[in-house]
């Protein structure tokens, strides 16, 4: 599944993250020691944000886990392979929004989909939705930035992502045609 092949690399990255965290905490402690008059405001602010995260983070993690088990990657490829028109666009959006892992596994999937004959516009929509409209993440966006901000940003993003998919497809078709013509003459 998600961690195929590079669990070792994941472990190494994780260790790096924990070391960075330790360094940051030490630097923070030193800074607060040097500027004691700032300590109370810094600690209060950090605590408030931490509380807000702790309230939702475990639940979001569980949702991510449930998604990845109940909706496997293979299903995404299966449905994306042969879909076009409005149905293809909606499917690319919805499948991209499912939290099936980080962006770096979306690229190989997209490449496989291109080989399978999926439309380029749908691939672009799929990748973009994958990158910026992940469902569990949006729950956290609502928590921190409010429902109005989140929905407006998502709505606009969806519209622009669809436009972008279509523009890129047309541009690539156009330049490919030109290349073929140039090659002939």
């Amino acid at each position: 599944m998600k961690n195929i092949g590079n669990t070792k690399k994941n472990k190494k990255n994780m260790r790096k993250d924990y070391i960075t965290m330790a360094v940051v905490l030490v630097i923070a402690a030193v800074l607060l020691f040097v500027f004691p008059q700032k300590a109370s405001s810094v600690l209060t602010i950090s605590r408030n944000y931490l509380v807000e995260l702790v309230l939702v983070l475990p639940a979001v993690m569980i949702i991510i886990g449930l998604f990845s088990v109940w909706i496997p990657d293979q299903m995404v490829v299966k449905y994306m392979g042969h879909a076009s028109g409005a149905k293809g666009i909606i499917l690319s959006l919805v499948l991209g929004m499912l939290p099936t892992g980080p962006l770096y596994i979306a690229f190989p999937m997209a490449a496989a989909l291109i080989k399978k004959g999926a439309k380029r516009s749908n691939i672009i929509i799929f990748i973009s939705a994958w990158a910026c409209i992940k469902l569990p993440q949006e729950l956290i966006e609502i928590q921190f930035l409010g429902i109005k901000f989140t929905f407006l940003r998502l709505g606009l993003t969806i519209v622009f992502v669809i436009i972008m998919g279509i523009i890129i497809e047309k541009l690539i078709e156009f330049t490919d045609k030109k290349n073929i013509k140039a090659g002939r003459s």
Binding site: M14, D17, M21, S46, Y49, L50, L57, M61, G65
Partner: peptide, 28 residues
């Protein structure tokens, strides 16, 4: 699912701590 949730959680903890500290200093 819970195993994946737990793994994801462990992986994100250091990033969460770093960003929380950063926010404190940014606004403080």
């Amino acid at each position: 699912s819970l195993k994946i949730a737990f793994k994801t959680f462990i992986k994100i903890i250091p990033l969460v701590v770093i960003i929380i500290v950063f926010i404190g200093f940014l606004l403080g």
